[in-house]
């Protein structure tokens, strides 16, 4: 069975003046895959992700997301992706319900279907009692789970997660990853950046970026075999040690 390719990048590059943030990266991501995007701070992960989401115009190279070109068809891309940025992206001064309704509305969901989705989601997250509370009153872990659920509410083909579990406790992280697995099972492709190497083990395939370049790309088990490492942590350290860019 030939897998459908949902993200295709070829020599994708982003320059800011003399600085090359992302240097000719090429990779494919298949439908339903959990694709880990690893790298030290400043390696260029967020910039690469922003180009794929249509937030940043590439300097050169080619890329297609959900079959749409990142230069010309960004509005089509936007209808087909979900995005969760590093910064918390829900409105703290709106309630849980109002946030869900807002994001459902801007993706063109009708009131009735939004309501049904919302109720299912609140049950799944065990947050039915919180629906009328302001988001700012929720604990961070809950906020992150809610933000993820909102990002996939409109059933995008791909969801981009930029360090979604930063600052979250291990138990909640585990729960968060269960949500990611659920999404992948439903056929949503997950593109995730992370700093946690245990999370890298959960991914189907992992790419490791160093100084704007993809140094390695394979399944976690193959990577460990090739680098003769016991854990992803060691793989990462071997690759990232050579980095010249100082972390930010």
């Amino acid at each position: 069975m030939i897998k459908e390719i949902v993200i295709k990048a070829e020599g994708l590059t982003k320059r800011f003046g003399d600085f090359i943030a992302v240097n000719k990266i090429s990779f494919n991501v298949e439908k339903g895959e959990i694709f880990g995007f690893l790298g030290a701070n400043g390696a260029g992960k967020t910039t690469a992700m922003r180009m794929l989401c249509g937030l940043s115009i590439p300097s050169s190279g080619k890329a297609a997301v959900a079959g749409f070109d990142v230069y010309k068809q960004t509005e089509n891309i936007k209808q087909n992706i979900g995005y969760m940025s590093q910064k918390f992206s829900l409105y703290e001064d709106l309630t849980v319900k109002e946030n869900i309704r807002f994001y459902a509305g801007i993706y063109g969901m009708g009131r009735a279907s939004a309501k049904e989705k919302m109720n299912n989601l609140l049950v799944q997250l065990k947050m039915s009692n919180e629906e009328n509370n302001l988001v700012k009153s929720l604990p961070l872990g809950w906020k992150q789970k809610l933000a993820f659920s909102v990002a996939i509410l409109h059933q995008p083909k791909i969801v981009f997660l930029d360090e979604p579990t930063g600052g979250v406790d291990p138990v909640t992280r585990r729960e968060f990853w269960n949500l990611i697995y659920d999404a992948a099972e439903k056929g949503i492709t997950v593109f995730v950046t992370t700093h946690y190497m245990d999370e890298a083990e959960y991914c189907n395939r992992v790419s490791i970026m160093v100084d704007g370049v993809i140094e390695a790309l394979d399944t976690p088990s193959n990577l460990k075999k090739n680098y003769k490492a016991a854990s992803m942590d060691e793989v990462f350290l071997q690759l990232a040690r050579g980095a010249k860019r100082s972390s930010d």
Binding site: L55, E75, K78, S89, Y91, Y103
Partner: peptide, 13 residues
């Protein structure tokens, strides 16, 4: 400042 504008920019609004 709070970053929600990114979320809007990545949506079809």
């Amino acid at each position: 400042e709070i970053g929600t504008i990114e979320q809007i920019n990545v949506s079809p609004i």
